[in-house]
Amino acid sequence: MTAAQARPAGRLSHAPLLGMALFIASESIFFMTIVVAFIALRPAGLATAKQELEFTKTLIFSLFLFASSGTMTIAERRRDRDGWVWLVVTGILGLVFLTGQGLEYVRLLSTGISPAAGMFGTTFFTLTGLHGLHVLVGLAAITGLTIASLARRGRVTAVGWETVAWYWHFVDGVWVVVFSVVYIGTLIG
């Protein structure tokens, strides 16, 4: 028996998932650091935040992102059949969310709110921008998975699907925190 043949296949096939879990844990600390900075600096930007943030609009766009976690789960369940369709739906929902973010950025920037303009701009753009970047990475992963699942029908493993799904749920979960801190926090602060 060679070493190669003796790999304990059961355990090992879960490696990507475990790797993703650890990576997500690490990413959480990254966001935690920025969120703590946001909270610490919040008083200095609160007035502007109250004036400039559009709660309802963003809430609606957020719903698209939250929904995409649901479609991702469906995609996973149906991976042997039409899962790829649901992946596309997930991607579109994510894109809609990003568009919402983009619109908000354009509006803020056109009223002169930028990272340089004050503490609100500094913290808002950094936190939401970093989240947006992660959504982009998630979209890239979903695109990759879609293509792979079409090109190699049925050969992308369940673990592969799950790994991408976990990352996407994470990105979604981060938004729950960011939305609470930035938008709900402003509303009640």
Partner: peptide, 22 residues
């Protein structure tokens, strides 16, 4: 630990290059 450094570096970067005020 490392992600905290990355986060700090990002903040320093936006301070230096986008005129932010962290």
């Amino acid at each position: 630990a490392y992600p905290a450094l990355s986060a700090a570096l990002v903040m320093l970067f936006v301070d230096r290059h986008l005129g932010a005020h962290f």
